[in-house]
Amino acid sequence: MISVAAIAAMNVLPAGAANVEGPSVFWKISIYGNPRALTSGMEALAEKVSSETDGMFQIRIFYAEQLGPVRENLDALKLNAIEGAGICEFYHPGKNPAWTVFSLPFLPLGDPAVDRQVRERMFEHPAIVADMEKWNAIPYASGLLQQFELMGTGPKPETLDGWKGLRVRAGGGLGDALSRLGATPQTLSAPETLIAFQNGTVDAAAFPFTYAHVAFKINDEAEWFTSNLAPGTSECGWVLNKTAFEALPSQYQDLLMDNRDLVLDTQQAAYAAEDGKNLALFRETLDEIVYTDEQRAAFREKAGQPVWNDWVEANSDKFDAQGVLDALLTYAREAGATH
């Protein structure tokens, strides 16, 4: 697999060489947390844009909520306070209800190639676009989050009954799924989760496996992890300020849109690079929980389609929820036929 460094090297011009002429522009991108695999794609984009324009178009990523709380990034876009942001749909489901389809459990997105193709198409779906238009934003690039797994402390939930009573950081449909096992879901931001572990107010946390557990130091607090529950994923992707984008000269707009693959390629390479070393670390320092096929099938039966049905019913008065879910499943079938 091509490394992150190799991707970056192939996409940077020698100093002083400008392929794209244009005015001086400075953009601010807001993201929670520190630099990590999820941010690697936008970092590569910022470098590429600067190189292509000989420094005339600068994109600066502000980490660790320097520009405001992560739950207020959409508000900041609406106020034109920032030009782009990384958002997680389950941090503010009421602001982007159609986007919460991405966190439904057991969607057929386990194959990374299928997952990528589905998300690229969903980012152009009218309901997904409409959610962002309310906030003066446009969908740009998916975070391509991996399947979630859980880490926790205390008694190991080696059976499905073991989840009863556990306080679990899990948002959206994934939280709904775990609640059907008797867990109490909590919608904490990623940075808040480490503090919750340290304070003893959460027992387990679901994160994209494996990079995010390490990025937010959850493995430092945990005693065990699941490695094959694979209950689902979410969407923590990148959106741009619509006003700022439309104010760009067309050549800068094209530069951004033509480099979405760079963002996605870099993210995927970064995730893959993390997985090998992280899994070895987890197995060395934590107890691994591996569920049987029968246990996983029982979880899917209890928390798959029933949660989908509840989601459609809960959102049918806000947008065409059944249509959004059907589109995602159709895209997944079509992508699966080609991969």
Rank of each mutant, 00 (worst) to 15 (best):
K318F: 08
Q295K: 07
M132H: 03
L188F: 11
L145T: 15
P139I: 04
F282T: 14
A137G: 02
D131W: 02
E192C: 00
W311Y: 02
A81F: 14
K242H: 13
H92S: 13
F62R: 03
R169D: 15
P112V: 13
L194C: 10
N219Q: 13
W238D: 11
E246D: 12
T153P: 04
F197P: 02
A5C: 06
F207N: 11
I31N: 07
P97L: 02
E133I: 01
A314M: 06
D131F: 01
Y211M: 09
K28D: 15
L174W: 12
A212H: 13
D287W: 13
K277Y: 15
W311I: 03
P155V: 10
E158I: 12
E65T: 10
L256H: 10
A230L: 15
L328F: 09
L328I: 05
L229N: 09
S40F: 06
A297H: 12
L194Q: 14
Q58G: 12
K164N: 05
F216T: 14
A222L: 09
G41D: 09
T210V: 14
Q305A: 13
A170K: 06
M257D: 12
N278Y: 15
H92V: 15
N73Y: 03
K134N: 06
V4W: 00
V307F: 04
M257N: 14
N309G: 04
A335S: 09
P105E: 11
S189H: 06
E294V: 03
A244C: 06
Q66H: 12
P139K: 01
C88D: 14
E235K: 00
H92Y: 15
L109F: 12
R119A: 12
W311F: 05
P105K: 04
A332R: 01
K134F: 01
N73R: 01
W135F: 07
L104Q: 02
N73L: 04
N136V: 03
C236R: 08
F62P: 02
N309L: 09
A76E: 09
